[in-house]
Structures are given as structure tokens and as C-alpha cells.
């Protein structure tokens, strides 16, 4: 899951994969703003064929949170 996830994050936020880790967040990635997060959600949903709830989306503070929610949706 991580590899696919990192690829998507890298594409959406235009950052190299090497700079992405569990702690990546709006503090470490400049282009991580409220709009790009929604683009990221859209990409994750179409790539993993899932649908997040509003509370899941607004709860995301860093990459670790994304992984947790993906796991809850059965993505391994």
C-alpha cells in the first residue's frame, strides 16, 4: 500500500517520494493545503476504489492518518 500511496502523494503534492514519510504533513510539505488534500482524497478513492467520509477527510493531519484510514477501508 505504502508504495502506491507515496506515488499518489508525490504526484498530487509535487514532492519527491524520498521526502515522504509517516510524519509528512502540511508543516513539511508546502503544497499540502486544503484544496490539494481534496485532490488527494479524490485520487486515493479512484485508485483504491473506496470512499472516505467527511470526518475521515477532515481528521487527516499527516501521512500516518491516511494510512490508518486506508487500513480501515480494507486497503492493505
Amino acid at each position: 500500500m505504502s508504495e502506491k500511496l507515496y506515488n499518489i502523494i508525490s504526484k498530487v503534492f509535487s514532492v519527491p517520494i524520498s521526502e515522504i514519510n509517516d510524519e509528512s504533513s502540511p508543516e513539511t510539505i508546502e503544497s499540502w493545503d486544503s484544496f490539494n488534500v481534496l485532490i488527494l482524497v479524490d485520487e486515493l478513492e479512484s485508485n483504491f476504489n473506496i470512499k472516505f467520509s467527511v470526518s475521515e477527510i477532515i481528521d487527516v493531519k499527516n501521512v500516518k492518518d491516511i494510512k490508518r484510514h486506508l487500513k480501515n477501508h480494507g486497503v492493505v
Binding site: S34, L38, I57
Partner: peptide, 8 residues
């Protein structure tokens, strides 16, 4: 969802 989160 996009409407509630981002007024999209």
C-alpha cells in the same frame, strides 16, 4: 462531501 469540506 466536497461542498461541506471546501464549498466546492
Amino acid at each position: 462531501r466536497q461542498f461541506f469540506i471546501g464549498d466546492i
